[in-house]
Amino acid sequence: RAVAALSAARTDAAIPTLISVLAFNNPGAAVVAVDGLIQLGSPAAQAILNNLDDYNYGARAWALRALAGIGEPAALPLLLSAAREDFSLSVRRAATYGLGRVRWADLSESDRLAQQQQCYETLKLCLQYDPEWVVRYAAAAALETLAPAATQLQSAIAETLNRQAHSDEERAVQARSRLAERRLAGGV
């Protein structure tokens, strides 16, 4: 309840406390803290990035989830490497999803195109090769949200989703890929 009150206060002064809650191993409190951090936006993202080394993997997953929700472009290198390489599937899942929710308007146009290309390539790898269904599922969802902002990549994204909708070993990933593909085509 205290965490909820802090989150609702929407003040930057709450940031360090909210970040510390992520390490409590209390999922209920962490959900509320993540929501609070997302509301606070960029300053919260900066504080999370500055503290990241100190977390255990559970806390890192929640931190990545907050960064993903904020869409902070400064977090992109971290999201890209976490999506590909983190040993924890919860971290890869959150990072992958976050790659589809970057605030692209905050980047210059030339920077944006290069970064979107990187996001797409990483998401494609995650969708096709991650051994965990939930990471592949998150990659399909992220490609859906990346596409409208990345017009130059839309046909490649549609093709990648279509292939996965027919080939993934899990029905749920097939279905999510198909849903993304249909939404991009304006079908749903």
Binding site: S90, V134, R171, A172, A175
Partner: peptide, 21 residues
Amino acid sequence: TLAENSLKLISLKGLLDTHLR
């Protein structure tokens, strides 16, 4: 439910799999 998202996702995937099957 107040629990880890990873468990909630597995649970919902079970629903989705059953439904699709």
